[in-house]
């Protein structure tokens, strides 16, 4: 594994809606070493999700380079990027995004569908991932038979089932109550301790204390990049101002 798991160089992203062009990321550079846990904060529309989707190989930047574990992501074609996602990434989406007609264990197995593992091995791996998030006993339930927090856990199990080095999470606690959110954050923290690099978008400053590092974005640039402890300890107000949360 390269020294820097994530390396963004001067990434620019422009969205065109009809005649209007919106520059959502402005020459953004970022490095994340392996094993880190990064919280990404910032006001709505500041480009957090765009950043995540670009790191995830889902969204072509207009300029700049995205290098993950030494791989120049946008030198790969679409299908190679799909392969890359399958091997390197676990995605946790805001609305869980479970497939409604598949059970918890089937949802967890999804990233393994197109791998060559035998069916039994796939199931075993999925059950291990579900155990990791404490959902093994509800493995045969459909998503609509699970609570929000439980669905979130299944989504996390799905993200880690193929043991990727990097997990990208976009507001994973956005739809959860405080206690459940805390449980999820503890799970993230423990996954990080066992070696998973995490990049997580969140609106809740409380969550940042489970991450080692917090970056704040505004209008497509990183306006602060600090040790999370500082954010929680004393500079919370200052940080939140800089992140535009309290404006």
């Amino acid at each position: 594994m390269a020294d820097l798991l994530i390396k963004l160089e001067q990434v620019k992203k422009i969205y065109k809606t009809g005649e209007a062009e919106v520059e959502v990321l402005r020459n953004l550079s970022l490095t994340v070493p392996p094993g880190e846990a990064v919280a990404v904060m910032g006001p709505s529309g500041s480009g957090k999700s765009t950043l995540l989707s670009i790191i995830g190989g889902l969204n072509l930047p207009n300029e700049g380079k995205v290098i993950i574990d030494g791989i120049d992501l946008y030198c790969l074609n679409r299908e190679r990027r799909a392969d890359f996602r399958r091997e390197y990434l676990g995605f946790v989406f805001q609305h869980f995004q479970l497939i409604p007609y598949l059970t918890a264990v089937q949802n967890t197995m999804l990233p393994l569908t197109t791998t060559r593992y035998p069916a039994r091995k796939k199931r075993e791996m999925a059950m291990q991932a579900l155990e990791r998030v404490g959902m093994e006993r509800k493995c045969n339930r459909l998503p609509n038979q699970l609570s929000g927090g439980e669905q979130e856990r299944v989504a996390i199990a799905r993200a880690i089932v193929n043991a990727p080095p990097l997990m990208l999470a976009d507001e994973p606690t956005g739809n959860l109550d405080t206690t459940t959110a805390q449980d999820i954050m503890k799970l993230f923290s423990s996954l990080n301790k066992s070696g998973l690099t995490i990049l997580m978008v969140t609106h809740n400053p409380e969550n940042t204390k489970y991450m080692k590092r917090t970056i704040a974005m505004q209008d497509g640039v990183i306006v602060s990049d600090t040790d999370s402890l500082a954010v929680v300890a004393g500079n919370e107000i200052e940080f939140r101002e800089s992140a535009g949360e309290l404006r």
């Binding site: 995830g56 889902l58 679409r78 299908e79 799909a82 392969d83 890359f84 996602r85 399958r86 091997e87 990434l89 995605f91 989406f93 995004q97 497939i99 999804l110 990233p111 569908t113 197109t114 799905r158």
Partner: peptide, 11 residues
Amino acid sequence: IFRAIGFRAKD
């Protein structure tokens, strides 16, 4: 979702 978790177009 399928695409995001690594399904190819042919899948």
